[in-house]
Nucleic acid binder design. Structure first.
Length: 427
RNA sequence: GGAGAGGUGGCUGAGUGGACGAAAGCGCCCCGCUCGAAACGGGGAUUCCGACUAAACGUCGGAACGGGGGUUCGAAUCCCUCCCUCUCCGCCA
């Protein structure tokens, strides 16, 4: 959510932002209209309220002196009913203003490359050489099934499509990767939290999943939603709170399972682990001073990259263009890993600076060190570090051997009981 | 699930129908004392919205004491409802 006054006073900036994102400016024009109407109504109601308050005070004073106040009471009663009517209109307008404001996306940072679609995203850097294969590299689902570490068929039987059963060393691999990633991030200075996987509507709204994306979310009775990412419970840890400047930055790492209906993606990535309804992810979340947020974004990105480097998986960093930027983000980098079987890159992490967009919505503030300064909204950032399922894809594909086995990068071995390779079970 | 208690500013906590935006304490800011600090003394500060203004950290007004609704001339205070927290009992991995 943008600041109301900022939007009102800088419609040109917001209009330009919408244009860069390739969005209609109608939401803005509508906001300006209802905001004006709301203020007009306030100018009518507030003087009435003033009069009512004034008269009520007089009634109190006169009553104490034992004077008759019937005439006053009559007058106030009339004013009150008038106020009640107008107040209804004000409330209606306020709802409209809020809704309009919530519908306006964040303003892209000046460093975000202009563009319309993902084709306009800018490659910032590449790491690692895609390996030259002496055989035709196979898809991860074939490798996994042959190794007997993932069972898609039985997953479909017990849960339906877009689920996986990790079996034996597959289960160990998934758990080991989670542990490995968390350990790396702990060394980078993050603190671990392990939050609930079910959250309430207020939390989903504060981070922006609701109301816009309700279709994509699983929700249960009791008004609880399955988290689509750890970003939701972790960012909401400090909802409605005021932190001390000295406590900033707060850097957290969290593992959660993530749940998404993938309702709008029928027929897309149906095979394998790429697009699951349930998947594991280790997430990095930061709460920082506004002056530090862009620097923190760079280190967040590097902290996520470190995982891929340790796993020896070739990847590239892409700066999303204005047209591809998420609704709440002011700037976003994607990490994309190389898939030899498809000769393309696959998104494995998304690292964003939301500036104060989420903080305003979630009401997360900090008290500046100098006490005379007002409390301000802090900046929030988050990024995957990393999506576990997709990491397994990259690992299997990039480290596959001709005989069907898969080499395990050295830093991961301690998490897999010292194994050097994943191999077919000998029958 | 049953019974009870409670939700007030950055924090603790008083306030049960009218001068309460809210005592007191802690914490914070400014000034004095001091070489400096602590202690002490004095002073200051809630947030949001609107109007005026070139603009205001300025003036005036409105709103806000968990959320929503109601009673009343007037609600932090009374009533209803929802949410949450705590204590005890029950159940349970």
């Amino acid at each position: 959510m943008l600041d109301l006054k900022f939007v009102r006073e800088n419609p040109a900036i917001v209009r330009e932002s919408l244009e860069k994102r390739g969005e209609d400016s109608e939401i803005l024009e509508n906001f300006l209209k209802v905001d004006e109407e709301r203020r007009r109504l306030l100018r009518e109601v507030e003087p009435l309220k003033n009069k009512r308050n004034e008269l009520s005070r007089q009634i109190g004073r006169k009553k104490q002196k034992g004077e008759n106040v019937d005439a006053y009471m009559q007058e106030v009663k009339e004013i009150s009913s008038l106020i009640k009517e107008k107040e209804k209109q004000v409330e209606e307008k306020e709802r409209e203003v809020k809704e309009a404001l919530l519908g306006i996306p964040n303003i892209p940072h000046s460093s975000v490359p202009p563009g319309k679609t993902s084709a306009d995203n800018q490659v910032v850097r590449e790491w690692g050489e895609p390996r030259r294969f002496s055989f035709t590299p196979r898809h991860h689902w074939d490798i996994a099934e042959e190794l007997g570490i993932i069972d898609f068929k039985r997953a479909a039987k017990i849960s339906g499509s877009r689920f996986a059963v990790y079996w034996g060393e597959g289960a160990l691999l998934a758990r080991g990767l989670i542990q490995f990633m968390i350990d790396v991030h702990l060394r980078q200075g993050y603190e671990e939290v392990y939050p609930p996987f079910l959250v309430n509507r207020a939390s989903m709204t504060a981070t922006g999943q609701l109301p816009k994306f309700e279709e994509d979310m699983f929700h249960t009775d009791m008004e609880l939603f399955l988290v689509p990412t750890a970003e939701v419970p972790v960012t909401n840890l400090f909802r409605e709170e005021v932190l001390k400047e000295d406590d900033l930055p707060v850097r957290l790492v969290a593992y959660t399972a993530c749940f998404r209906k993938e309702a709008g993606s029928y027929g897309k990535d149906v095979r394998g682990l790429t697009r699951q309804r349930q998947f594991d992810k280790v997430e990095l979340v930061k709460f920082v001073h506004p002056d530090a947020s862009y620097q923190e974004l760079e280190t967040l990105l590097q902290d996520a990259e470190r995982i891929l480097q340790l796993l020896e998986i070739p990847y590239r960093v892409v700066a999303l263009c204005t047209g591809d930027l998420g609704f709440s983000a002011a700037k976003c980098y994607d990490l994309e890993v190389w898939l030899p079987s498809e000769k393309r890159f696959l998104e494995i992490s998304s690292c964003s600076n939301f500036e104060d967009f989420q903080a305003r919505r979630a009401n997360i503030r900090f008290k500046p060190r100098e006490g005379k300064e007002k409390t301000r909204y802090l900046h929030t950032l988050n990024g995957s570090g990393l999506a576990v399922g997709r990491t397994i894809i990259a690992l299997l594909e990039n480290h596959q051997q001709e005989d069907g086995s898969v080499l395990i990068p050295e830093p991961l071995r301690p998490y897999l009981k010292g194994k050097y390779t994943l191999e077919k079970k000998q029958v």
